[in-house]
Design a protein around this nucleic acid. Sequence first.
DNA 1: TTGTACGCGTTATCAC
DNA 2: GTGATAACGCGTACAA
Lengths: 335, 335
Amino acid sequence: MATIREIAEKAGVSVGTVSFILNGKGDKMRISVATQERVLEAARELGYLPSISARRLRNSDEKKIPVITILWTLDARASLISRFLQGIQEKSLFKDGMFELLIQPYENGKIHEVESLHTGTRFNGAIIANASKEDLEYLERTNLNVPIVLYQRYSEKYCTVNVDSRLTGIEVAEYFASKGHKSVGIVVPEISSQAVDLRQEGFLEAVKNSGMINSQILRGDFSEEGGYSVIQSLVKRSKDLPTALFFLSDPMAVGAILACHEHGIRIPEDLEIIGHDNDEQTAYTYPPLTTVHLPVEEMAVACVNQLMELINHKVETTGSLEFKTELVKRKSSKS
Amino acid sequence: MATIREIAEKAGVSVGTVSFILNGKGDKMRISVATQERVLEAARELGYLPSISARRLRNSDEKKIPVITILWTLDARASLISRFLQGIQEKSLFKDGMFELLIQPYENGKIHEVESLHTGTRFNGAIIANASKEDLEYLERTNLNVPIVLYQRYSEKYCTVNVDSRLTGIEVAEYFASKGHKSVGIVVPEISSQAVDLRQEGFLEAVKNSGMINSQILRGDFSEEGGYSVIQSLVKRSKDLPTALFFLSDPMAVGAILACHEHGIRIPEDLEIIGHDNDEQTAYTYPPLTTVHLPVEEMAVACVNQLMELINHKVETTGSLEFKTELVKRKSSKS
DNA sequence: TTGTACGCGTTATCAC
DNA sequence: GTGATAACGCGTACAA
């Protein structure tokens, strides 16, 4: 709000003097204690807040490195960001000082409220994660003036780093079919997303093609509680449970495991469970969870690299990278 | 690197023109296509990177709001940051546009490498989390020119938001004692930290005072794997296991639960397990984990509020806030 | 399309 | 010894 010029005026000194004092160089510059007091007091009264932009502008070291941001939703999926960051960390992409990383939370469905995507006043490029369908539509029809990489989404317009979610759905369904299941289900988080839709689509299609008799779509919150509730209501509704379930999030599967224990449903004998993402905890549930490994760490590195290339004009704006998921077989499915 | 002025020179136009074109306003300003091409080409060749500081400096809207940063370590504890963020989110502290939040990863023990703590060119204030003992020492002996709040650490010099970790240790030990345990243990993550030390100290002291016969300190990685290994080696070493264990991280406890299942150790009959933090997953392990609830969300809000007060000169630099932990009893301990 | 004032803190140069 | 002055960094936007 207040600038050092206002402080200077109020304290009756020059801006240079104010700057020195505010930076603790008052003594070194041999400015009298009385003056220092006066200036500090004035700063306090005016509620001085240094402008970091102005400071940076002066510091030549910090001018050259690009600032990149990760736009991530702060809902239940917030916990997934740690793997993303660790992926970047492991490659020690930070250390080289090639970029500065900024994580900016946004609300699901409200990416249009992130003004800096238009103003370009905060970062040189952005990685957008967890975009909902509304968010994606918005991005498709808007012209951003900032290089962008989409994580886990498809787009004609932007650079993307993705996996074939449809194929994942197919593979899990075929895995179930190969085990001879006749009645299966897919448990879908109540968060609209392209990736979830595609997994579901692939799964259902493959289920149909494989001649399984019965398949159902169940919905629940993305979290442990969501998976727990799904089992609860399944048990309440009928005695004829499906014999295999594909949960589109690991936390849901974790919640489901507890519910099964409580209802005496044996895993995998009565019910096979497969999760999605391969979160660290899934190797330690009881029984350990079979899950679809999402190469988050590798994708994170790819996102950063792609974005850097974009920023450096070294690549077209619509390049795409596709990674592979992989079924990690543990004990929640029959061997 | 290159500035808009260099581009102007190379393309033989003025800086104003370059600015318009680079911001997609070329058509609106009726600048010939040929010129636009030339400018864009020049920008590409020079590897132009817009200076966000300069842009911000011009945008009066963004001048008034302080930028605050969270310094968080990118080790196994990275996953804890999501609760911290969600705490801030829930209070919708973001929405009011009172501040901009920036998350900056740093490496355990290397906070001195975070230069912007000195230059003040990136944020108006910082919340420092997970500081190791080395980091703390460094902070104590260095004069930073930026307002700081320490999360989960004590300090004479800085504002802190903390819990009484020593008391937590005591309470868990007394809880064990009240159950009549004679042989107990505490499992400590291999990450040096004041909080961990204090919990351990309180625990061991109370164990001694309560007349328990045997207590041991076990060490392992902070993660699930660490807890799993601790049980493994305990089993290998002897048949006389302790009958109660306090894990200083929830993931460790989760790993331990699986190891117990695999070795036929019944929880809580043979071994009571208590974790620490009350991560979301702990309510869904099998059996659900008794754990110490750390009010991360509330503390996060307190950190932000304290920091804002500091930045606004409304509070002394050394104010401290203390929160309470609480034992959440679930089925991994006897009722 | 161009020229240029402007935003704000830093620091080197100059003056009393 | 104390402190003032002004150039500077870089993109933006308005007057010309």
